[in-house]
């Protein structure tokens, strides 16, 4: 069984927000809900300054704090490493949101209009189809694409249809996806050769998302 993971090359990334928008489209995310984020800031003091750009998403941790915190078993870690939420089981207690040290989860309290006061647009209608209020939501590594792709014999991270939307749309090719348990996969090779590390490994959650810095 594969263990899915992602590698993000921060040097390649230029902060274009492709990953953020691709994810919004792919998942019909409601207004105000963002699963991929790009943090922008700076470090240093004038004139020796570095711009910091960090694309972040759910880390699908091996020892996920959210899984441990969930009282109903709505949040589970699949065998292939993807951490998912069953919205029907979620009671909206939000313990997971507090537990996640990466602030990767959001609470969908109620639907907001994308164009307030101007009526429903396709985005509002689609969001309502895909979600229900009163639940925690987060990135699911596009598990629909992975699962459907695998059924067709496609390779996630290699074949577009089976690959997470944020990975395949990145113009600088900064994102990679694949099997962390396969030592010959591109992600495994990159982690080894480029000494990629997760953010905040000291939290002990064992993220599946690694960064090349």
């Amino acid at each position: 069984m594969a263990r899915w993971g992602m590698v993000i090359d921060v040097l390649r990334c230029n902060g274009c927000y492709s990953c953020v928008i691709a994810c919004k489209q792919e998942n019909f995310l409601p207004a105000g809900i963002v699963w991929n984020r790009v943090l922008v800031g700076e470090s240093g003091k004038y004139p020796t300054v570095t711009k910091e750009i960090l694309p972040i998403l759910c880390n699908h941790c091996k020892e996920a704090a959210c899984v441990n915190a969930c009282p109903t078993g709505a949040t589970v870690r699949r065998e292939d490493g993807v951490v998912t939420i069953d919205y029907d089981k979620c009671i909206g207690c939000r313990y997971c949101i507090i537990a996640c040290p990466f602030q990767a989860r959001s609470y969908l309290h109620k639907f907001k209009e994308y164009f307030p006061g101007q009526g429903k647009t396709p985005w509002d209608i689609l969001a309502k189809e895909a979600f229900q209020t009163g639940v925690a939501v987060k990135c699911d590594f596009c598990s629909d694409r992975i699962d459907a792709g695998l059924k067709k014999g496609l390779k996630p991270g290699v074949d577009r249809e089976a690959t997470p939307a944020c990975v395949l749309n990145c113009p600088t090719k900064a994102r990679y996806f694949g099997d962390l348990d396969d030592p010959n996969s591109e992600v495994s090779r990159l982690i080894k050769e480029e000494r990629a590390t997760p953010i905040h490994p000291e939290y002990g959650t064992e993220p599946s998302v690694y960064y090349i810095k």
Binding site: C16, Y17, S18, C19, V20, I21, A22, Q25, E26, F28, P122, L126, R160, A165, L168, N169, C170, P171, K173
Partner: peptide, 23 residues
């Protein structure tokens, strides 16, 4: 209804990608 914009994989320049503002 148009629901998603992706890069065109047949185009060698963008290799199936599109930036945020285009999407």
């Amino acid at each position: 209804q148009a629901v998603k914009i992706e890069g065109e994989p047949e185009c060698p320049w963008t290799d199936g990608t599109i930036c945020g503002k285009g999407a």
